[in-house]
Amino acid sequence: MLKINQLHKSYPIGDSSLHVLKGIDLSVEEGEMVAIMGSSGSGKSTLLNIIGMLDEADSGEYILDGLPIKNLTEKKAAVYRNKFLGFIFQSFNLINYKNALENVALPLYYQGMKRKERQEKAMFHLEKVGLADWAKHLPKELSGGQNQRVAIARALAANPKLLLADEPTGALDTTTSYEIMAFIQQLNDEGKTILMVTHEEDIANMCKRIVRLRDGVIMEDKKVEQVRAEQYV
């Protein structure tokens, strides 16, 4: 599904540069649910951004679903992002003047899908996250948990191969966090590959595999017994 070899990335800071990723090797199979952990500054978000084609590595190899991701033009990166990836962010990143349905339909719009079809499909995904009744509401009229569910519906709308989540529960209280995690686990059960950045142990333990980063290198990469989130809900 995803293969990374000797990935390096550094950022210029003033005159010197900060070496963030120092040779990462990682491979993820289809259907996995991986948590990337580490303290802030460990490079976990940078790694996720590179995987999400939002940022580019300095050197190393990155192959996604058999396609080498290198020197992409902006246009091509946009097409790949749309086709392969679904994003879930800590701060939801919904467009504030669009209602839930329109937000979910946006990736489909960029796929060039017809309006009617788009709305039907977006509605289907909203139903799936249990927010069909809230389709016409703006993000500001929804709670944090509801917003994150809209964001998940949006990430799923384009039927991506890989779901990338950057601290998906970071802005939510514990109960809501578990609700969201239960939902993400359910998606994984249905076969979606999920990659998630988090710094919370309990959230990481709800994944099937934990990759620990420290100072730009992988310290530990182990499979774990998945803790089901439903039991806390």
């Binding site: 999400g52 939002l54 902006e74 246009k75 946009a78 097409v79 992002r81 749309n82 086709k83 994003f87 990143n93 919904l94 467009i95 504030n96 946006l106 990736p107 960029y110 796929q111 949006r154 384009a158």
Partner: peptide
């Protein structure tokens, strides 16, 4: 800026 970033992450081409 943020909205445009979101659109791009969702697959908006520079042209759009």
């Amino acid at each position: 800026t943020k909205e445009i970033g979101i659109r791009k992450a969702l697959g908006a081409s520079p042209r759009s």
